[in-house]
């Protein structure tokens, strides 16, 4: 048989076509923006941009993992708000080590919130969209209960380090570290393969003798932790907490995930694309600000982008 001697075909482009297209789009957009804004391609602007999108990227990583399993999580914003508030409430601004315990506790709270979602969805055999709609109310409600009005303050040294430390590179380092971990998880581990496979055909994965529920449960738990990272970063960035901060994160994370090339039906997608998706959304908002467009229109615009991205995905599937 000549098949054996045939060299293995290179599938790199076929497999990564979506991500490649998104990055081409992102760079074209950056070039266009730089025409209007001569300060666009400066280090300062990029530092700024990364700081702005960092929390959204964290949440979107979680959303991407969940959407890859064919699920969805509307409670991620609630978890961001809850962890944001918990982090600030526990912080003691002036004690030298007052940030260590609050950070750990906050991460654990995020984990527990994700665990709750995962448990109810897998044990109760309930639809993720309904479960997380309900838990979102619980998480946001708890955040509001703890802190009805925005306020508080963060451990000063910690806040400064997280947002501007190591010559302003600490958000970048943190981002790269988490990105590498998440992408290895989805693309290089057995867990990631299973996660995608569940999004492709859950019944088939079960028949293959895989613990489907455990994988789904872990996915929601991981998303909870990622949201806690976003919550902590926001505390440092704002030097305070706001129980209402989470309200747009669910929709925004879905938008960035879909714009980033992940299919809503699951299985197909890449966290690398999600990163581009987040930057695309941030740059568009940045532009609209620059042109003095009202922030209300920005919502309309974002909705339109989501519809466009979904339609493109649908067309892609048909073709």
């Amino acid at each position: 048989m000549n098949v054996t001697v045939k060299k293995r075909k290179n599938y790199f482009v076929q497999r990564n076509l979506r991500t490649i297209i998104i990055y081409v789009f992102l760079f074209v957009m950056m070039l266009v923006v730089s025409i209007f804004n001569d300060k666009f391609f400066t280090l300062g602007n990029f530092k700024n941009l990364l700081r702005t999108v960092f929390p959204l990227i964290m949440v979107s990583f979680g959303q991407t993992l969940i959407i890859l399993t064919g699920g969805i999580d509307l409670s991620l914003g609630g978890i961001v708000a809850l962890t944001n508030v918990v982090c600030v409430v526990l912080m003691k601004p002036d004690s030298p080590t007052g940030f260590i315990l609050p950070v750990i506790v906050t991460l654990v709270i995020g984990l527990l919130a994700g665990v709750l979602n995962g448990l109810v969805i897998t044990r109760g055999r309930l639809a993720p969209i309904i479960v997380t709609l309900a838990t979102d109310a619980i998480f946001s409600g708890a955040a509001l209960y703890m802190m009805p009005n925005p306020g508080g303050s963060v451990h000063r040294a910690f806040g400064k380090f997280l947002t501007r430390g190591i010559g302003g590179a600490s958000p970048l380092i943190l981002f790269l570290t988490i990105f590498i971990v998440v992408r290895c998880l989805t693309n290089r581990t057995s867990f990631g393969r299973t996660l995608r496979a569940i999004g492709g055909n859950e019944g088939a994965v079960y028949s293959t003798g895989i613990k489907v529920d455990r994988v789904k449960f872990l996915t929601y738990a991981i998303a909870g932790v990622l949201c806690a990272v976003a919550g902590i970063f926001l505390s440092a960035q704002m030097n305070s907490a706001d129980a209402a901060i989470g309200k747009n994160y669910a929709m925004n994370s879905i938008t960035t995930t879909v714009v980033g090339g992940t299919a809503m039906s699951g299985a197909i997608g890449d966290p690398l694309g999600t990163v581009a998706g987040a930057f695309i959304i941030a740059i568009i908002n940045n532009m609209l600000n620059l042109f003095g467009v009202s922030s209300f229109y920005q919502f309309v615009f974002q909705g339109l982008i989501l519809v466009a991205a979904l339609s493109l995905n649908a067309l892609n599937k048909k073709g």
Binding site: Y11, R15, S190, R193, T194, R196, A197, G199, G200, N201, G203, A204, V205, S207, T208, G209, I210, A267, I268
Partner: peptide, 18 residues
């Protein structure tokens, strides 16, 4: 069949036993 249409042949064959 219990194959996942979106994954590759080898990903399917070695699913969970990679």
């Amino acid at each position: 069949l219990t194959l996942i249409g979106e994954l590759t042949v080898s990903e399917n064959i070695y699913l969970s036993i990679e």
